[in-house]
Amino acid sequence: MSVLRHAARVAWKDLRIELRSKEIVYTMAFFGALIVVVYSFAFPVKPDLVRAAVPGMLWVAIAFAGTVGLGRAFDRERENDTMRALLLAPIPRLAVFLGKAAAISLLVLLVALVCAPLLALLLDVDLFAMPAELLLLLVLGAIGFANVGSVFAATLLKVRSRDVLLPVILYPILIPLFVAGTSATEAMIAVKPDLDKLWYWIGFLGIYDAVFLVLSMWVFEALVIE
């Protein structure tokens, strides 16, 4: 269990730095809010139209703000080459991956929790009809995003064009996750909520997260070592 202990140490270090500067949280949350506001101007606010469009808005906002936060979180490890220090430490490299992914999951979840109420407020949709299910959905989405995101952001650390390559790599892999999140949210806020559909997509996300977590754990070390 030393893997988990060290992973917690790595994650806690990230969170402590973030708690001190709050840079990523504030900018990510603001960026997410901006996207939401831009959306509310980009589409006519009509009840049935909004109901159809809000799930997509929520998940696209998560995707964009998440990518920005992910890039910045790994920029921090690049500044003084501290990623090398982590990989050099006598802890399983798996722990480095798990720690980073856990910290980033939390950040992404936080942004989702800023965007969702804002969408509900500005566009007057009842996103919180099923709060527990929505939270579960957002948690699963954040974990999946952070997990795939951490693997590739860590590998891209020394690549010059990492900022453009990060979405180029991430989004094709993450499309099923975003579609699942959107479809589940849709089922949740429909006039007549479709529970079968909702749980199908939550299950889909659960399996997606599990499969890619295993894959990430398996290839992380091979990817980050030059």
Binding site: V151, T155, S161, I175
Partner: peptide
Amino acid sequence: AGSSADRLAAGLAAFGTVGIPFIYFMVDA
């Protein structure tokens, strides 16, 4: 991706291939 291109591309291909069943079920549902 410069000198990391081979690793990164390999990672993308591995994740993309593992994702095929998810794409299948996603498109289906």
